[in-house]
């Protein structure tokens, strides 16, 4: 007579075999591919800028803030996330299963390393998506600007344009410095393919650059002349601050607003916005405004060479790099195994 444990053992054994079966992984992979294929094409035809917008956020932030607004068009992304986690669970169980069964032999070590490398890359991606940040910062040449969302300041020491013999701009070379609490922590020249890397933070070459408005001189009632520069807040006598919230260059237009001009933002001690106003010397545009009892009058706009830099912080990047190295080594070992140089995984027989 069968003992009462046996059906339970059988069921658990069946669940384990299904969970660790390569076929389970393959089925999930097929579903993942179908979802991504259909979703990517549908998203593109609905909005060709969809991917560019998605790339400007860490993934988790996009999922929290943007995806709900585009639902149900973003449904496939939620499905993709769910399938990705299921795939990873399947891969993890397969890898554990391999390790328990075959760890005493080197047979299949290459494949094991490939799986392990991929798991680390995924872990790094999850970490980077959850805790990473991506910012843009407009820095006038010779000035320092605060990187939004990070406790860092970026200084643009010099920006020069590399041109072809015909005069066509090919690249830029920017001398930049990165500061934390007033201390220079990294610096150097950056150009395409050669960003400034400081641990998990990377400063990329400017997306946009040129000569243009970077700030202006204002008359503020009770404070006299105030020199505002993009990226730097100016503190007034009562601890309120003024800063540049945005800039329109000559000929630029946003709705009814024409450039050149700048959006001036006033914040209280807690950093909360008290009010803002767009000031411009263009006829028909306001050159005066009252914000929270302070009369602001635009004197003149300040023009300079500026660079619009991207600064990315990815806490998962080292896991990704370690995972990539392991994956890369795994493919070499697998190849050596396939060629019979080292013990390899089974090859198919007809």
């Amino acid at each position: 007579m069968a003992s009462p444990e046996k059906p339970l053992e059988k069921s658990l054994d069946l669940i384990w075999r299904v969970a660790t079966s390569p076929v389970t992984f393959v089925v999930l992979t097929i579903l993942w591919c179908i979802d991504l294929a259909a979703g990517s094409i549908a998203a593109y035809f609905n909005d060709p800028q969809f991917w560019i917008k998605m790339d400007s956020y860490p993934f988790n932030l996009w999922l929290e803030q943007v995806a709900p607004k585009t639902f149900p068009l973003s449904l496939w992304v939620y499905i993709l996330v769910a399938l990705s986690y299921l795939m990873i669970i399947s891969l993890l169980l397969c890898t554990i299963n391999w390790f328990m069964r075959r760890r005493k032999r080197l047979k299949g070590l290459g494949e094991f390393l490939v799986h392990l490398g991929f798991l680390l890359i995924f872990a790094g991606f999850v970490l980077g998506s959850a805790l990473g940040s991506r910012s843009q910062v407009n820095v006038p040449q010779g000035q320092t600007a605060k990187v939004p969302g990070m406790e860092l300041d970026l200084k643009l020491e010099n920006l020069s344009v590399v041109r072809s013999p015909e005069g066509r701009p090919l690249d830029t070379i920017s001398s930049v410095g990165l500061f934390q609490d007033g201390v220079r922590v990294a610096g150097g020249k950056i150009r395409t393919n050669h960003p400034l890397i400081w641990g998990k933070t990377v400063v990329y070459p400017p997306e946009d650059y040129g000569a243009g408005v970077v700030g202006g001189v204002l008359g503020a009632s009770g404070a006299g002349a105030v020199r505002l520069i993009s990226g730097r807040a100016v503190t007034l006598a009562d601890d309120r601050t003024l800063e540049v919230g945005g800039i329109l260059q000559r000929g630029e237009r946003r709705g009814n607003v024409l450039g050149p001009g700048m959006l001036v933002v006033m914040k209280n001690q807690a950093g909360r916005t008290m009010g803002s106003a767009y000031l411009s010397p263009v006829p028909g545009m306001p050159d005066k405004a009252d914000i929270a009892g302070v009369r602001l009058t635009l004197g003149q706009l300040t023009e300079s060479t500026y660079g619009l830099f991207r600064v990315h912080h990815d806490p998962g990047i080292w896991l990704v790099i370690i995972g990539s190295v392991i994956l890369f080594l795994g493919t070499f070992w697998a190849l050596a195994g396939y060629l019979g140089i080292v013990p390899g995984a089974a090859k198919p027989q007809e």
């Binding site: 993942w32 991917w51 790339d55 990329y204």
Partner: peptide, 23 residues
């Protein structure tokens, strides 16, 4: 990662390359 700022980009060519790799 060195050029665009991320080793994973949501650009259609990159996505389909991953589809191919997973396939």
């Amino acid at each position: 990662y060195l050029t665009w700022g991320s080793y994973w980009t949501w650009r259609i060519k990159g996505l389909w390359s991953w589809i191919l790799w997973f396939y």
